[in-house]
Amino acid sequence: MSGSSPFGVHRVLEPVGESLPQAARVLDPRPEIWPDEVRIDIETLNLDAASYRQLSDKHTGDGDAIRAEVLDIVATRGKMQNPVTGSGGMLIGTVAEVGPQSTLGLEVGDRVATLVSLSLTPLAITDGLERWDGAGERVPARGHAILFGRSIAAKLPDDLTPELALMVMDVCGAPALVARTLRTYAGESPSVVVLGGAGKSGSLSLAAAAEAGATRRVAVVRDAAEAALLEGTGLATHVVIADARNPLGLAEALVPAGGPADLTVVCVDVTGCEQPAILATAEGGTVIFFSMATNFAAAALGAEGLAADVTMLVGNGYVPGHAAYALELLRGNAEVRRLFETRLHE
């Protein structure tokens, strides 16, 4: 290829000329930038929840083994893309160089969070992840990453710690898509069920649902400890303890909370939630799968097999204005902020 592509095709090493960066097996992470690219000096990687869970389960929580596999993935693929889940995460860092044709609006010295997945971001790690014990999704790191002409990044806000801002931006697509979906119910009072309501994307989705006028907001959580996080916050009108992988058990547990909802949002990082989510959704309703653990073939075939008239949306992580919206939800809702700060210090 004679020039750079705004989609990053010029960084694809395998298979050449056949893939976009996310689908490619190997990317070129060299630090030299093309005219429309930006190079970021890395501070922290944030592995997505599904990817980290898979790695942790595979290595039974052995931090050294998890760290070694992450290093191997990045060294082999030129990006952080879990070969099992296909997902990556995002990062924060400082802008080191900006190409003269870049349209991202960034300047050298800006501290930013990338709003595109590490699964498509050229990445090189230079410190061996020596400061990371492998025991959590936040990964202190040194190295660099490359943003393409069509990438997305947001400057870190001055009023939040970088770690807190990163946690919010990592899931900012979920509340924005929830809000946009619920706005289609103009003049009505839609109901919402959020699987994984005590988590990061789940709690923000509940806050977005409340702001969008959802009067019945059901948070499904896995145990009493997670239920306690939500009790008294006002984020949910009902908190239900149930296994989000058990279709009949979940459907039964939702009965006292009003039954199926107009919108069901899947925010859990485990497999097997496709049919339970469909049963949790009223006829004519919508399911948003905001989880990289989702098996979309199982979702489609499951809906067909259940004769369920539901619209199913893939939460792709991008809605215009999503980062600013999520940050405003955090700033404006003390309970959401408390939940995030609690998880920050876990």
Rank of each mutant, 00 (worst) to 15 (best):
M1A: 11
F7P: 01
L13K: 13
V16D: 10
L27G: 09
P29S: 10
R30V: 07
W34G: 08
P35H: 04
D36A: 15
E37T: 09
E37Y: 12
I40S: 04
L47A: 11
L47I: 14
Y52A: 09
R53Y: 09
Q54N: 11
L55C: 00
D64T: 11
I66K: 11
V70Q: 00
L71M: 07
L71C: 02
D72R: 15
P83A: 10
S87H: 06
I92N: 15
G93Y: 11
V95L: 11
V98Q: 08
T103E: 06
L106K: 09
V112K: 02
T121Y: 10
A124P: 03
D127T: 09
L129I: 06
D133A: 13
A135Y: 01
V139D: 13
G143H: 00
H144W: 15
R150H: 13
A153T: 02
D159M: 08
D159E: 14
D159N: 09
P162E: 03
V168L: 03
V168W: 04
G173S: 12
P175I: 00
V178T: 12
R183N: 12
T184I: 08
A186Q: 03
P190Q: 00
V193W: 08
L195M: 14
K200R: 14
A207Y: 02
A210M: 06
G213P: 09
R217Y: 05
E226L: 02
A236T: 01
T237E: 05
V240C: 10
V240G: 05
V240I: 12
A244K: 04
L248H: 12
L250D: 02
A253N: 11
L254V: 11
V255L: 14
P256F: 01
G259E: 12
G259H: 14
A261F: 01
D262N: 14
D262W: 12
D262K: 10
V266M: 04
V266K: 14
C267Q: 13
V268Y: 00
V270C: 08
G272M: 05
E274A: 09
E283Q: 14
E283V: 13
E283H: 12
G285I: 10
F289D: 06
F289E: 06
A293N: 03
T294W: 01
E304W: 11
L306K: 10
L306E: 07
A308L: 05
V314C: 04
G315A: 10
V319D: 10
P320C: 10
H322W: 04
R331N: 10
N333S: 08
T342F: 06
H345N: 02
